[in-house]
């Protein structure tokens, strides 16, 4: 097994008397993708916030590179090479891709009043780094807002990788994307894994998680439903655990009653349930 970057043992988080998360155990290895799955409100955000250093954990152990840690700020996590790509991606839509790529950490040349942005290096590095992630950008000078959602996600990932991330935490990177764009992002997740990064992929979609994941940790109502290596789990099992097959079937009936037999939504839904049952 490859190098263990992060180990989470029985970790939990309480806000006063609210238990947001408890008993979560999983690990992140270099060159592997650890998927964190769960429905809305399952505790995914709390879990990322612990890893990203935004909120310290209140129970259990967080071990990075073999040493127990207790992050008190996102800087602590960043210093250890743990980078988080949030859903809003932290990009400025009207600024060119290359300016966004280096925002906050711009390389300069010259000194005194002549200290200026090293534009050539910035543009060239942006191009090559994106190319290394397999992103073939038309023009690094275009505003990042003109890129598609998937491409923007990829720029954010490439930026984190370039600035020394060893562990990449991706917060629902495919949530707002169409089918095709999601595929593109999944490709880049696989690419990051090939480059030897440990990836924590947070999602509520088992169909996105399964193809790229090496390890799956499921959350439900703030509790872990288990931590499985890929060899122990099939996609159908994963989907069933995620959705709770019975719940989905009930929802399907409800929709059919509400919208009628011919409704496209209802048909898709019952189709999904059938797939689950087989």
């Amino acid at each position: 097994m490859s190098e263990t970057l992060i180990e989470v043992r029985d970790i939990g988080k309480r806000y006063g008397n609210v238990i947001a998360l408890s008993g979560v155990t999983t690990s992140v290895h270099a060159g592997e993708v650890t998927c964190v799955l769960g429905d809305n409100g399952a505790g995914k955000s709390t879990f990322i916030k612990i890893l990203a250093g935004a909120h310290p954990h209140s129970d259990g152990e967080l071990v990075v590179d073999g040493e127990p840690r207790h992050f008190t700020s996102p800087r602590d996590a960043q210093a250890l090479g743990i980078a988080t790509v949030y859903q809003d991606l932290a990009v400025v839509p009207l600024m060119p891709v290359w300016r966004n790529f280096f925002l906050g950490q711009e390389p300069t040349k010259g000194w005194g009043p002549l200290r200026r942005l090293d534009r050539e290096t910035m543009k060239r590095t942006t191009s090559t780094e994106l190319a290394a992630m397999g992103i073939d950008l038309r023009d690094v000078d275009q505003p990042i807002g003109t890129l598609s959602g998937g491409e923007r996600q990829c720029v954010a990932i490439a930026r984190a990788v370039y600035f020394g991330a060893r562990v990449l935490i991706l917060d629902e990177p495919t949530a707002a994307l169409g089918v095709k764009q999601s595929g593109v992002v999944l490709k880049y997740i696989a690419r990051a894994r090939e480059r030897g990064l440990g990836v924590v992929f947070i999602t509520h979609n088992p169909h996105h998680a399964y193809p790229v994941g090496d390890r799956f940790m499921l959350l439900r109502r703030g509790r872990s439903m288990g931590d499985f290596p890929k060899s122990d789990l099939t996609l159908d099992e994963l989907t069933a655990m995620m959705a709770g097959g019975a719940e989905l079937e009930a929802l399907s009936h409800e929709l059919t009653a509400e919208l009628g037999q011919d409704s496209e939504v209802a048909q898709t839904m019952s189709q999904d349930v059938k797939v689950l049952d087989t």
Binding site: D88, V92, R99, L103, Q105, L117, R119
Partner: peptide
């Protein structure tokens, strides 16, 4: 013009005006 287009400060000015939360997240 020099400051806006050629310096770090200029990059930050465009960034804080364009998306303040994002700028803060990346360390501006």
């Amino acid at each position: 013009t020099w400051v806006l287009l050629r310096t770090r400060a200029g990059n930050w000015i465009f960034a804080v005006g364009g998306a303040q939360t994002s700028s803060r997240q990346v360390g501006v």
